[in-house]
C-alpha cells in the first residue's frame, strides 16, 4: 500500500511539474474554450432583424416597417440590387408583389413567410373576416440549442478524454522496450499492477480535476452552466477519465511507436472524434448522424458531450446509465488488454 501511495505521489508530482502536461491539461483547454465562447457567444446565434429593401409603392410598405423582425432599408432601384448582391440585404420586396432574394436560406424563408402572411391577411379581410392580433395562440418554450452549446459540450467531451496522455505515459514508464527509464524500472522489484493501478487512479483524479475545473470555469466566468446536475456529471467525468486513460494504456502498450508519435496521434484522434461530435460546427455532426449514425452512437466524445448536455441543459438522464456503463466496461476491457500486452517482460530488442 505504501508503494502504491508512492507511485501515486510520483505520478501526481510528475503531472504538476511537467510543463507540457500542464499545458495540454489546463492551459490548452482553457484557451480553446475561451476562444469558442468569445467566437460563438452573444449575438451570433440570435436571430437578428433581417435587412430588406422595399420598393416604393409596395402595398405593405408601412406594415413592413412596423415588423420587428425586419430591418427595412430606405433604398431603391440599382442601389437595392447592389446591396442584395453585396449581401448587405437578404431580399427586396418588389412592387409587383414578388420577393427577390439571392439564395435559399432561413432569412429568405422568413421574408417570404412575412410577405405571404400579409397577403393572406388581405384575403381574410377581403372575405369579410377579421384576425385577432391581440390574442396569444401559442406558448414559446426555449431550448438552448445554439452552436455554442454543441461546440462547448463536444470540446468538454474531448478534454474529458485527455487522460489518454497519462495512460500512454504510464506504459512508457513500465514497458522496458519503450524507454530507458522503463528498462531501469523493470530491473527493480516494482509491481506492475501496483504501478499501473496507481497511475490509473492518479490519472483519473488529475483528468477529472481538469474537466471539473473547466466546468467551473465555464460556469463562473462565462455563465455557461454544465453543472446543473453535479453528481451525475461528476460520475460521467470519472467514467470518461477512466476510459481516456484506458485508451492511452491500450495504444501505449499495443505497439512500439515512440512517445512523440503517440502524443500527436492522440491529439489528432481526439480532434477527429470531437469534430464528429460537433466541435467544428453542427453540420459535420449532422452529416455523421445521418450517414453513419452508429459511429456517433459509440463515439466516446459524442457519448460524453451528449450526456453532459442532456444532464445539465435539458435535465434528461436518457442514455446516462448506458453511456456510463459503456465507458466503464470498455475501459476495463482496454485495461485488461493493455495488461496482457504489458505482461511480456523479456523482449526481443530494447
Amino acid at each position: 500500500m505504501r508503494r502504491f501511495c508512492s507511485h501515486m505521489a510520483l505520478n501526481a508530482k510528475m503531472s504538476f511539474k511537467d510543463k507540457s502536461s500542464l499545458f495540454w491539461s489546463f492551459i490548452y483547454p482553457i484557451l480553446l474554450l475561451t476562444l469558442m465562447v468569445i467566437a460563438f457567444s452573444g449575438v451570433q446565434t440570435e436571430q437578428k432583424p433581417i435587412a430588406v429593401a422595399v420598393e416604393p409603392g409596395h402595398p405593405f410598405a408601412d406594415v413592413f416597417r412596423q415588423i420587428k423582425m425586419l430591418d427595412v432599408k430606405d433604398v431603391n432601384g440599382d442601389e437595392a440590387f447592389t446591396l442584395l448582391r453585396d449581401k448587405d440585404i437578404d431580399g427586396i420586396y418588389r412592387v409587383d408583389g414578388v420577393l427577390l432574394v439571392r439564395g435559399s436560406g432561413v432569412n429568405e424563408t422568413i421574408l417570404r413567410e412575412i410577405g405571404s402572411e400579409l397577403t393572406k391577411v388581405s384575403s381574410v379581410y377581403a372575405a369579410g373576416r377579421s384576425l385577432d392580433f391581440t390574442k396569444r395562440y401559442v406558448e414559446r418554450g426555449d431550448q438552448k440549442e445554439g452552436m455554442l452549446y454543441v461546440t462547448l459540450s463536444a470540446s468538454l467531451g474531448m478534454f474529458a478524454l485527455y487522460g489518454y496522455f497519462s495512460g500512454v505515459l504510464i506504459v512508457h514508464h513500465m514497458q522496458a522496450n519503450l524507454s530507458p527509464l522503463a528498462a531501469r524500472l523493470s530491473t527493480t522489484p516494482i509491481s506492475r499492477i501496483s504501478y499501473v493501478t496507481a497511475g490509473l487512479v492518479s490519472g483519473v483524479a488529475m483528468s477529472s480535476l481538469q474537466t471539473i475545473g473547466l466546468l467551473f470555469y465555464l460556469k463562473w466566468v462565462w455563465k455557461v452552466d454544465y453543472l446543473a446536475d453535479p453528481w451525475r456529471t461528476l460520475l460521467l467525468v470519472l467514467a470518461a477519465s477512466f476510459f481516456g486513460i484506458a485508451i492511452g494504456l491500450f495504444i501505449g502498450a499495443s505497439n512500439k511507436w515512440p512517445l512523440k508519435a503517440k502524443v500527436p496521434l492522440g491529439v489528432a484522434l481526439m480532434l477527429l472524434l470531437s469534430a464528429a461530435s460537433g466541435m467544428m460546427g453542427p453540420p459535420m455532426r449532422l452529416f455523421i448522424e445521418n450517414k453513419l449514425p452508429w459511429l456517433n452512437r459509440y463515439n466516446p466524445v459524442n457519448m460524453i458531450s451528449r450526456t453532459i448536455y442532456r444532464l445539465n441543459v435539458i435535465g434528461s438522464t436518457t442514455e446516462f446509465t448506458e453511456n456510463i456503463l459503456i465507458l466503464f466496461i470498455a475501459g476495463v476491457v482496454l485495461c485488461v488488454a493493455s495488461l496482457l500486452f504489458m505482461r511480456k517482460r523479456q523482449f526481443k530488442s530494447l
Partner: peptide, 15 residues
C-alpha cells in the same frame, strides 16, 4: 539484490 546503472540517463527529469 541487484542494482543497475544504465548507459542512458534514466530518471524522472521533472523531479
Amino acid at each position: 539484490r541487484i542494482g543497475f546503472v544504465p548507459q542512458d540517463l534514466s530518471f524522472f527529469a521533472e523531479l
